[in-house]
Amino acid sequence: MAPSAIAAAGTGSEAASTDYGDALALRERRFAAALLAPAFLALLATTTFPLMFLIWTSAFRMDLAMPFTNGFVGFENYRVLLSDERFWSSLLVSLVYTGSTVALQVVIGLALALLVMDMKRGQGWFRLIAILPVVLSPAVVGMIWRTFMLAPEFGIVDFLSINAGLGSQNWLGDPVLAMVSVIAIHTWQWTPFAFMVLLASLASLPEDIYEAARLDRASAWQRFRRITLPLLRPAIVMVVIMRTMVALTAFAAIFTVTAGGPGTATEILNLYAYRKSFTELSIGYGAALAVALLIVTIIISGILFALRRAK
């Protein structure tokens, strides 16, 4: 095992030792490279390469329905995109969808976590039930809601609405109600996530600081505002970041319920890019939309990470 390369150096102990350190580092690097290579090649092939190809594609007119019009168009797709009303409306829908679902998840999740935290019995039920929605496929969730919950007359929500005197509603056919519905579905599925994370975070707060605060005569509200909230802030910010990223690229939960409809009422940017590419088969323009979505994602996450670092 004695490294012969080092023995050859032999010009003095100091030089030799440095070489030996380098040789060790080199050996460690090679071992690391060998271990990392498969995963990183796969990641390059399945993420970085597609990204390059996506950007390249977005510079083409590539219409699978009309192949004879295909060709390099440079920034033409982006020029069209900027004056595309459907793009701007889908961006707005994305922001509304993301903003409202994330806000609802955090507020309800936090409220529920605080509530459950104080419960002496039954916490286990919450922890168990909360798992169910988050492990399900959004596609299955969307399908269940679309049919068994929201179908006019047949669905339970509509049944309740009728019995509450509000009458039968076209939950997924009316633009506003459809938007409310997809937001509600996403919130239903992912609030347990916020709940579980915040509950775990709450449970890890040391009890003695609350005892100290109580001795300092802080009221329950003051304890929440001055102690709980600041201490939970990292967890809350983390939930917001994670949920925002997911909501921006939500697909199945909308696609299976409304497919973006009625019209484009629930068409978030992600869905628009999909429909353009795979329903209308304008792949070049769809690619430009996907790039736009990537840019939006980067901007929003940049803002969120800046917020996380602040203070």
């Binding site: 399945t46 390469f49 996506l54 697909f251 890019a273 996907a290 979505l293 990537l294």
Partner: peptide
């Protein structure tokens, strides 16, 4: 960070 739709189009 890459939106899945951005992966599936080129893929």
């Amino acid at each position: 960070m890459l939106p899945p739709v951005g992966i599936i189009i080129p893929y």
